Computed example of a mutant assay.
Amino acid sequence: MAETELIQALQAQDSAALTALYQAYSPALYGIILRIVRAEPTAEDVLQECFLKIWITFHLYDQAKGRLFTWLINIARHLAIDKTRSRTYLQELKTQKKEASSLAERLGHEGFRPEHIGLRKVVDQLAIPHKTIIYLMYFEGYTQSEIAQQLSIPLGTVKTRARQALQRLRKLI
């Protein structure tokens, strides 16, 4: 199913379209989530929350503002970050040992690897300041505030560079 047809079917609340969306995008979204939460069971829970939120809020998606995949990544990333900041998650980290995830072992030590879908090659075409922001935000799971603190630059600069980088990526893709 083409992306345009998929979007139309999802806007019409077609449950078969949700299945197609899940089959097409769940591996990439799971990899992003796993990279942030670093625990397979937690990542599975967040992925389920992610698709529930996508289904409920799909009417808010606007093709004019960006690609479907970008919108999906943002939802997954924000839910994963929210999960890592929750008290229950922090408590679980204190009380349990981290176990090696079988998925991370299958994919290599890095877990999700953007090069599997060609993202790293596209991001590598950006200027260094923009590339750094995108890597930290989308591949490492940092918030814009955390990036500003880590790079010792103003938050406004991070936001501007992120916006410019996404505009450039849109043109490259």
Rank of each mutant, 00 (worst) to 15 (best):
K53F: 01
L21N: 00
F139H: 14
Y135H: 04
P114F: 10
Y61S: 08
I128S: 13
K159T: 07
E140H: 03
L68G: 03
A104V: 06
R161P: 09
L60N: 11
I33E: 01
E44P: 10
P114A: 10
L52Q: 11
Q13C: 05
T143Y: 06
E92S: 13
L10A: 06
R85T: 03
I7K: 01
T88R: 14
K171R: 11
S101F: 12
E92C: 10
H78E: 13
G31Y: 03
A28L: 03
D45A: 07
S15V: 15
K65S: 10
G108K: 08
S101V: 08
R77L: 04
I81G: 01
Q13I: 07
R77A: 02
A148Q: 05
A100N: 11
L60K: 07
I7R: 04
R113P: 00
F51E: 04
I7G: 05
I56L: 04
A162F: 12
H78N: 13
K159M: 14
E115S: 05
I153A: 09
Q149S: 12
V158E: 14
D62E: 13
Q11M: 08
A12D: 13
E110A: 13
L47I: 11
A76T: 00
F139K: 07
Y138S: 00
I147G: 01
F139L: 12
D124E: 04
R120E: 15
M137C: 13
A9V: 08
S26A: 01
Q150V: 11
R67T: 08
Q91S: 14
Q23F: 06
Y25E: 07
R85F: 03
E44N: 09
I56T: 03
L126F: 12
L90R: 15
M1N: 05
K83M: 10
H78Y: 06
A127H: 08
Q96N: 13
T160K: 15
L90S: 12
T160D: 05
A148F: 09
T19N: 08
Y89Q: 02
A104P: 02
S152L: 13
V46N: 09
L151S: 12
I173A: 09
T70G: 14
L29Q: 08
N74P: 08
